[in-house]
């Protein structure tokens, strides 16, 4: 695997995470329980879409086949997407959305921290820019973790259910492939195994503070996205997201 192929894979992985999570959060527009949450979730969605634009544009440049951000977002099929299974999971209730978000925010925050030291100019610039926004995302989802976990009996139960449902998708966030090895050797990206330790410490402390329990999945974790194998949700997300540009290919805003 060449350095360019590895970098393309890594950029697509990050870009697809941002794109799919942004699309999922956008589904909350007009539906949240209060105006402030509605606005907050859609603001986070907007930041993620912004990140996706930067990442997919760069991925297209590195690939060198002339594909634009739009080609990559709208013209690839499910098997070509490399987003983590976690971000494509259904919004569910507000508890599921918050737990999914918190798990991802802490992961993304520490990944960006690592990328701030990247030897690759683009990855460093991207990380310096995005970490400021993600700091606000993490603070939002963290506050809701505590407020709902350590809230009423009902909110506590809903949060525990959400954790139990989503925990099996956390292992895959840290799965490393040949691309990781190539890029780590170049000093371009941090080791996901190092980030896993920091992530576990922070997330588990919050779970405890929120009076919730770290789920026991009996060692089971869901994998697949690194090879393009997704849950049943991704196809539906893509159908909704891609229908317009695919049916009217040269449509402009």
């Amino acid at each position: 695997m060449t350095k360019e192929e590895a970098l393309y894979e890594f950029l697509i992985r990050l870009g697809d995470n941002a794109l799919i999570l942004g699309q999922r959060l956008g589904e909350w527009c007009g539906k949240a329980h209060q105006l402030e949450s509605d606005i907050a979730l859609t603001n986070v969605a907007l930041d993620q879409i912004g990140q996706a634009r930067l990442l997919l544009t760069e991925a297209g440049r590195i690939e060198g086949k002339g594909r634009t951000e739009d080609d990559l977002a709208y013209m690839r099929g499910e098997m070509d997407f490399r987003n983590n299974l976690l971000v494509e999971q259904d919004n569910g209730d507000f508890a599921h959305t918050i737990v999914r978000q918190y798990i991802f925010d802490v992961f993304q925050y520490h990944l960006l921290k690592g990328l701030q030291k990247s030897s690759n100019d683009f990855l460093k610039a991207y990380a310096d820019k995005s970490i400021k926004e993600v700091t606000y995302h993490r603070s939002l989802s963290h506050d809701w973790m505590l407020r709902l976990g350590d809230g009423t009996e009902l909110s506590h139960q809903k949060m525990q259910d959400a954790l139990d449902d989503l925990w099996e998708y956390t292992g895959e966030l840290f799965e490393m492939t040949e691309a990781d090895d190539v890029l780590i050797a170049e000093g371009m990206i941090p080791k996901l195994s190092d980030i896993k330790k920091i992530w576990e410490e922070e997330v588990e402390a919050t779970i405890q503070e929120a009076t919730l329990k770290v789920p026991d999945t009996l060692g089971f974790m869901a994998y697949g996205s690194r090879k393009g194998i997704h849950s049943e949700y991704l196809g539906y997300i893509l159908a909704e997201m891609q229908v317009l540009p695919r049916s009217m290919p040269d449509a402009k805003w």
Binding site: E36, I39, A40, N43, V44, L46, D47, Y136, L140
Partner: peptide
Amino acid sequence: VISQFGSTACKAL
């Protein structure tokens, strides 16, 4: 603070 996210990306409420 009411919310760290406001009417546009750059504003809090």
